[in-house]
Amino acid sequence: MAATTSTWSKRSALVRAARLVRRTDDHHRRLYGRARLYGHAWSVFTWLVAILLFFPVLWMVLTSFKTEGKAYTDPPTIIFHPTLTEFSQVFSSGIGKPLEHSLFTTLVSTGAVLLLAVPAAYSLSIKPIKRWRDVMFFVLSTKMLPVVAAIIPIYIVARNIGILDNDWTLVILYTAMNMPIAVWMIRSFLLEVPIEVLDAARVDGAGLVTELTRVILPIVVPGLAATALICMIFSWNEFFFAVNLTATRAGTMPVFLVGFITSEGLYWAKLAAAASLASLPVVLLGWIAQKQLVRGLALGAVK
């Protein structure tokens, strides 16, 4: 009898325990479920915000495939027959030259930046000079200077030595403009080169040039590519110098767009086509280099 009671009480204890487990389990599931519901709500909200912020860009691209008549209607037209007429008109209205100037100034200035910034970053990281902190501070402080305050002497000098409306003037300025961020980024990439590798190369008697080209460069090539991408984005989009220092002979894409709005201001579809074309290269580059963009913009502080 005693034995049965004991078994009974054991069983009831087990049942109670199981019930308790089930109850807490339910409690957890309910909590977890609610958290997941909140999570879903936040995800939907994030999507909505993203679509809202992206919408003007989407609208620009949509408008560029419309005919002029469909471009401005009240209410706005959403369903239409896509056409490439506007794009072909933009191409025949002389977009070729500004495209060339933009490509030239962007690529040449980016190349020049890398050529100057790699050795400089080397002197600030791998074999640092004594006062590298002061130099870094100076480099970063030049990024803080308002370019508008420099335009007057630059304009006067360019006018006096006859390099107004010249590709090279923009190349010189864009190189200086992108140097600080390039030095910062490349320095942070160089800091990641393992010391052991450098030591080994030095023991083998490698000189500066060999060390730089054979040992360091292969390791930091991805970082250099990221730096180049960011320099390209800023050069391609630059407007202030371009509009004040160039016109017909060296005008870049932003200058072309400005001219376009004065001559074709009433033709929205054509404007949208031109604006889409002008933005496309950098938007694509930026999409590809998203991760590097984060790093570069955080000035290499992110490891």
Partner: peptide
């Protein structure tokens, strides 16, 4: 979503201004 969100920063500022002014 990240790709959509960074796009306004990548669009050429002059093109962006043009876009907002008109459409």
């Amino acid at each position: 979503v990240r790709t959509l969100l960074i796009t306004p920063f990548l669009v050429m500022p002059v093109a962006g201004a043009l876009l907002w002014k008109t459409t």
